[in-house]
Design a protein around this nucleic acid. Structure first.
Length: 300
DNA sequence: AGTACAATAT
DNA sequence: CATATTGTAC
């Protein structure tokens, strides 16, 4: 029976790119076109067989630009360059955010530490301190996450109030959908209003397994999907799940600013701990499939 | 054709 | 902020 189920994340681990594999944080957000224009080597060279690269749009707000070291970008480029039919220059849209396991893990941890009460998009976002991540992103993901949790609760429900959910005995609860979610060590609580007399948060729970003070900053992986074009490439090496391929590029790096929430109520939990966690997986070049995700981070 | 994700609209 | 809906990708 679907041994894959158990293995999918084993594969995953292998798939997980290690920093070395990742794009060198150096010349990060340089659009391919631009790179070509400048005739500089593309970080994404090694193998990109059928990779169709789309245009990269610079993230609009809060850009931490380098102190204008040398090349001022946005000079050449898209001038009918190869009729790239590119972006309208003016209206730049934000690339789709790709929730990579690590990112999700961070998300989960954040929620876990916040407690259901405080686990609202804004707070989560802030606690995550992932740059480039917007509240909307979190909200959307949170919604999905809650759904997932609910589902799991509903099915596994029964006596095990504190059941971790994952690795449920042969119940085979997790559908294909849960891949990503299942990957992350679900804290084991959330949901269930059960606490009648004590609706309050309890956080006896400490983050996750290995949590060293690596203090990493996380970038966000964004996949550049084509806007209008229909699908042109199929999945190459599909994991058990089936879908999982975009060609994500790294975007942005550290820049975090503490935003003050004027309307927020600080309750008893001063959550300002930039906790960090790092799960380093040895990425092994597995079957021709190579997906890059990022997760480089610097220091606070 | 269907499923699933992330984004966007309510 | 939560939920519902739409769009896009696969």
């Amino acid at each position: 029976m679907r041994e894959e189920d158990s293995n999918w994340f084993a594969k995953w681990e292998e798939e997980l790119p290690k920093p070395e594999e990742l794009m060198p944080l150096s010349q990060t957000l340089i659009s391919p076109d631009l790179a070509i224009a400048f005739d500089i080597a593309n970080p994404t060279s090694p193998n990109n067989p059928q990779n169709k690269q789309q245009q990269q749009t610079q993230i609009p707000q809060s850009s931490q630009q380098q102190p204008n070291s040398s090349a001022e970008f946005e000079s050449a480029e898209l001038n009918g360059l190869g009729g790239g039919g590119d972006e309208p220059a003016r209206t730049i849209k934000r690339p789709r955010l790709v929730w990579t396991p690590q990112l999700h893990k961070r998300f989960v941890d954040a929620v876990a530490h916040l407690g259901i009460k405080n686990a609202v998009p804004k707070t989560i976002m802030q606690l995550m301190s992932v740059d480039g991540l917007t509240r909307e992103n979190v909200a959307s993901h949170l919604q999905k996450y809650r759904l997932y949790l609910k589902r799991m609760q509903g099915l596994s429900n029964g006596g095990s109030g504190g059941n971790s959910g994952q690795s449920l005995s042969g119940a085979g609860v997790d559908s294909a959908m849960d891949n990503l979610f299942a990957s992350s060590p679900v804290p084991a609580h959330f949901l269930h209003p059960a606490g009648r007399g004590n609706p309050d948060q309890f956080l006896p729970f400490v983050p996750v397994t290995s949590m060293q003070h690596h203090n990493h900053h996380m970038g966000v992986v964004v996949g550049h999907h084509h806007p209008q074009v229909q699908q042109q490439y199929r999945q190459f090496g599909s994991p058990a799940n089936g879908h999982f391929d975009h060609h994500p590029f790294l975007s942005r790096q550290s820049q975090q600013q503490v935003q003050r929430m004027g309307t927020s109520v600080h309750n008893g939990s001063p959550v300002v701990s930039p906790y960090v966690d790092d799960v380093d997986s040895s990425a092994v070049p597995v079957n021709g499939r190579k997906v890059l995700t990022l997760f480089p981070t610097g220091d606070d």
